[in-house]
Design a protein around this nucleic acid. Structure first.
Lengths: 132, 132
DNA sequence: GTTTAATCCGACTAAAGAAGTCGTATTAAT
DNA sequence: ATTAATACGACTTCTTTAGTCGGATTAAAC
């Protein structure tokens, strides 16, 4: 049904939350999870992933937490989704050629065309725009 | 990862196969499944669904089968996908409001905007175009 | 230095959805 | 009557997603 994963939704909500804080201010994963009723452990893992990717910055220990690191105007939604859930693709054959129907498939090319258009939408949307 | 279901892929391949036949000619589900190595039962069920929706026409009994009924220029991909897999929606809240985060969610509006753009692509593509 | 409150991270379990199979009924040509 | 097709619901299996758990690390506060 072409849905985003919860992980991606949670990540976007968290980034939006962080972008509302003043520069340098730290926010705990717990605060965010509590505010939006997101399962704590899951959000924590997601934020850790964003940290590894350099999108947020972390400080450990008591009074630690997360804050924005990257400029959200410079990250597009396509890259962001691919970071969290892998390739944006309507079909597996947009990713690799390990499809048993590859020789006989008659709809590859048109599907690819549509796939490209879809990716374009995501590519042309920055995270900053999603925060608005 | 925003994928189409196999059912949708199979349906498109089947329609493409049928659209290559001469007007009125019948093709069995088995022939199509064999040609593209699609699990027979699954394709059969899918074709039956397309028949109920008036997209193909069926003739039962020996020498029976399927043939195109609808004009593929007049059916857009959005409606077609929704027929087979339900609403095209990046998030559940694009479909209904049964989301526990509904009161606090901060990304609803921007996600809806993107969702609309995505649906537009599908709406502006006819099945006939996918057959090319 | 012990406690505490936070991140870190892999492994596991549970739930949901998608894909595929099966059995039985119906239809209609031969 | 037989046969080759569709019709369709119920079931099973597989894959992916979502969520949980346990234990480690870090660093502030006491």
């Amino acid at each position: 049904m072409l849905k985003l994963s919860r992980k991606t939704e949670y990540a976007l909500m968290a980034l939006r939350h962080l972008s509302g804080k003043s520069a340098g201010e730290l926010t705990s994963s717990k605060e965010i999870a509590g505010t939006y009723r997101i399962p704590g452990e899951l959000l924590a893992k997601t934020l850790q992933q964003l940290a590894r990717e350099g999108i947020v910055e972390t400080v450990q220990g008591p009074h630690g937490g997360y804050r924005l690191k990257a400029n959200l105007n410079l990250i597009n939604l396509s890259d962001f989704i691919e970071l969290l859930e892998g390739p944006v693709a309507l079909t597996d054959c947009s990713i690799d050629n390990n499809c048993s129907q590859i020789m006989t498939c008659t709809i590859r090319t048109p599907i690819h065309r549509i796939n490209e258009k879809m990716k374009e939408i995501f590519s042309n949307t920055t995270l900053a725009e999603v925060m608005q």
